[in-house]
Design a protein around this nucleic acid. Structure first.
Lengths: 123, 123
DNA sequence: ATTAAAATAGTAATGATTACTATTTTATGT
DNA sequence: ACATAAAATAGTAATCATTACTATTTTAAT
């Protein structure tokens, strides 16, 4: 994977964002200071970066994929009222994997949890 | 929600299926014995049934939504080798929700867990 | 049996994502 | 620096899962 300016600004955008942006949000924002950036380039890089593990692709929120920084582990919550997606920073629950492993035939590598929440604003 | 023959066969198909079928799989199979069934009808009913809670819509597996019986609680696993989606029957982990609630500002209503697994065949 | 609401079939449209191609950029060896 | 090959991009076209639309049919209740 060679260096590219476009990939750098895309990954920086995601790492500095708190909003779990979609491909289109990333494209529109970065276009402002990068007038030749192509939407295809955004999609291709999001795909590469999520496959390499630098970012994570979230499929479980709405109909558009969302992307998130993968620097430190966290779970996700979605407010059932306003739809906001939030990070939930708690230690990875390793015990769950070992427990499931004990009661099934499966090797458990990891897990993702999505919490259905009500955020403070919507309470 | 009025009765309809089409909705009945769709919900029965899902309840009898172990394969977490996509809309298209359901459509193709049911078409065999129901030559006028429409794909739009399948989509519309899957939407209604998942909103009413009779079935659940799984968004986190591949690019097509999958549908599953919601009669008794279970989690899901996806084999990272063969892509198979399996049910994991363990009690709902209520403690997790209460623990998160204690360390965040959020009301936690429920959660879904996706396990990344290796199935017996792929071991 | 009448009637209004709900549902369907079949088709068209939408919209997120992927594919394609000619051009440009990057990394490497001379 | 220079040449070269691999990798990446921009811009556009194509794909494909899903949703919307409309005329007709079915359901449920009086």
């Amino acid at each position: 994977m060679n260096y590219s300016k476009q990939r750098e600004i895309i990954i920086n955008y995601i790492k500095n964002s708190k909003s779990h942006p979609t491909a289109e949000m990333i494209y529109k924002d970065l276009r402002l200071n990068n007038s030749t950036l192509s939407l295809g380039t955004v999609y291709r890089n999001l795909d590469m970066l999520s496959k390499s593990g630098d970012i994570i692709r979230l499929k479980q929120f709405g109909n558009k994929d969302r992307f998130d920084d993968n620097s430190n582990h966290h779970y996700h919550g979605e407010c059932i009222k306003c739809g906001k997606i939030v990070d939930i920073y708690v230690d990875y629950l390793e015990d769950i994997d070992r427990n499931i492993e004990n009661v099934t035939n499966y090797d458990i590598l990891s897990h993702d949890i999505k919490f259905n929440i009500i955020c403070p604003k919507c309470k």
